[in-house]
Measured scan of single mutants.
Amino acid sequence: MMAYMNPGPHYSVNALALSGPSVDLMHQAVPYPSAPRKQRRERTTFTRSQLEELEALFAKTQYPDVYAREEVALKINLPESRVQVWFKNRRAKCRQQRQQQKQQQQPPGGQAKARPAKRKAGTSPRPSTDVCPDPLGISDSYSPPLPGPSGSPTTAVATVSIWSPASESPLPEAQRAGLVASGPSLTSAPYAMTYAPASAFCSSPSAYGSPSSYFSGLDPYLSPMVPQLGGPALSPLSGPSVGPSLAQSPTSLSGQSYGAYSPVDSLEFKDPTGTWKFTYNPMDPLDYKDQSAWKFQIL
Results as ranks from 00 to 15, higher is better:
N6S: 09
P7T: 12
P9W: 14
P9E: 02
V13W: 11
L18F: 12
L18Y: 07
S19T: 06
P21K: 07
S22I: 15
S22D: 02
A29P: 07
P33A: 03
P36G: 11
R37W: 13
R37L: 04
R37F: 08
R37E: 06
R40M: 13
T44V: 11
T44Q: 09
T44K: 14
T45H: 06
T45Q: 05
T47A: 07
T47P: 15
R48H: 09
E52R: 10
E52N: 05
A59T: 06
K60I: 09
T61R: 12
Y67S: 08
P79M: 10
E80G: 07
R82C: 08
V83G: 13
V83D: 13
V85S: 13
R90A: 12
C94M: 03
Q96H: 02
Q96F: 08
Q97V: 08
Q103T: 02
P107S: 06
A117C: 03
K118T: 01
P125I: 10
S128T: 07
C132T: 09
D134F: 06
D134H: 11
L136K: 13
L136D: 11
G137Y: 14
D140P: 10
S141I: 08
P145V: 07
L146D: 07
G148V: 03
G148R: 09
P149V: 02
G151L: 09
S152L: 05
T154G: 03
A158W: 15
A158C: 12
A158M: 15
V160S: 03
W163F: 02
P165S: 07
P172M: 14
Q175L: 13
L179K: 07
V180G: 01
S182A: 09
L186D: 00
L186M: 01
L186R: 07
T187S: 07
A189M: 13
Y191M: 06
A192I: 11
M193L: 15
Y195W: 13
P197G: 04
A200F: 13
S203K: 10
S204G: 08
S204A: 06
P205F: 12
Y208P: 01
G209Q: 05
P211K: 14
S212F: 15
S213I: 13
Y214N: 01
S216H: 07
L218C: 01
L222T: 00
M225G: 00
G231I: 13
P232A: 08
P236F: 11
L237T: 01
G239W: 12
G239K: 08
P240N: 08
T251G: 05
S252L: 10
S257F: 13
A260T: 03
D271Y: 14
P272V: 10
G274W: 09
T275K: 08
W276D: 00
K277C: 12
K277G: 00
F278S: 00
F278E: 00
T279Q: 01
T279R: 10
N281E: 11
K289V: 04
D290C: 15
Q297S: 10
Q297C: 15
